[in-house]
């Protein structure tokens, strides 16, 4: 980004270049959010479901006082946290192996293996899991000789599928961070007498932490907003996304108020991550 200041017209050109994306950002992204938030203060006709434009905070009061919404919000939050932890646990050794152990063709093959699932449709993958986790699916067939039974459809299935779906988003930043870590830093650490644990703690961990947090922003927020996976493998479970989706058809303002819940949660999470310094390297 080196624009020579003296050149006439350079500023104008830069402005012209940036104006469309900024306009899009403000109008489409932030604008739609503002409309959504505004409609949360309206109400609906209970019979026709038509939106009535009279200002009230009843929707928010209902969300805060009705215990069912608290239960659903906590369940959603819990699943998002578990999915994030699971992905971190799975991605760390994988990224480590890809960056430092595997070389040449193997490394490329692994990278392709991590990336290809991203090309397949989300629904295809979720339905594949529905088939695998079903009563006569491959999971139950594999567990049967051990005398075990698969989790079936439910919260566990949701965690498994979400962790599977978002895993690449965790591996990729971790891999990039580990790859960037120069080998001579590790050598220097060893030369200075640090053991493996000390090196991991003092050299590797600080380099990996921002990537881990960046990856967790994806896994956490994507899990928080998901509702299709739950519909497909969730059995009788409902998450915030499902409650919002079912209210959208009947009570748009209540749905809008409900959708403020994940928004608040994600903003809090982003703020926490920002404090931890993971966004500095963006």
């Amino acid at each position: 980004m080196s624009v020579t200041k003296g050149e006439p017209g350079a500023r104008t050109r830069l402005a012209a270049l940036l104006a469309p994306p900024l306009l899009w950002l403000i109008l489409a992204y932030l604008g739609s959010l503002a409309v959504l938030l505004l409609s949360a203060f309206w109400t609906t006709d209970p019979f026709t479901s038509d939106v009535e434009h009279s200002f009230t905070a009843d929707n928010f009061r209902e969300i805060l006082t009705d215990p069912v919404y608290r239960t659903v919000a906590l369940r959603t939050l819990g699943i998002a946290v578990v999915v994030t932890l699971l992905d971190a646990l799975l991605a760390l050794p994988m990224a480590f192996f890809m960056a430092w152990v595997a070389t040449g063709r193997l490394r490329r093959a692994l990278l392709v293996a991590v990336l290809t699932p991203l090309w397949a449709g989300y629904l295809v993958k979720a339905y594949a899991w529905r088939v695998m986790l079903g009563e006569h699916g491959i999971v139950n067939a594999a567990l049967a000789p051990l005398g075990l039974h698969g989790p079936g459809y439910g919260t566990t299935a949701v965690v498994i599928v979400l962790a599977y779906l978002w895993l690449p988003y965790m591996i990729l930043p971790l891999h990039a961070a580990l790859e960037r870590l120069p080998a001579h830093h590790l050598e220097a650490s060893a030369d200075l007498g640090a053991g493996t644990l000390r090196t991991l703690r003092s050299v590797v961990a600080p380099a990996v932490r921002p990537a881990l947090l960046a990856g967790s922003v994806f896994t956490f927020s994507l899990s928080l907003g998901d509702y299709l996976t739950v519909q497909i493998v969730g059995g009788r479970t409902q998450l915030l996304g499902n409650v919002i989706a079912s209210q959208v058809t009947l009570d748009l303002p209540l749905a809008a108020a409900l959708s403020a819940v994940p928004v608040v949660l994600v903003v809090c999470y982003l703020a926490a991550v920002r404090r931890a310094g993971a966004l500095d390297s963006l």
Partner: peptide
């Protein structure tokens, strides 16, 4: 940075905001 954060937040929030089709009045 603030812009980046805003973009990131915007993208995430849009995913949540999807499906809020406006209802016309009768």
């Amino acid at each position: 940075n603030p812009w980046k954060a805003a973009v990131a937040a915007g993208v995430l929030l849009l995913a949540v905001a999807c499906g809020s089709g406006g209802g016309g009045t009768g």
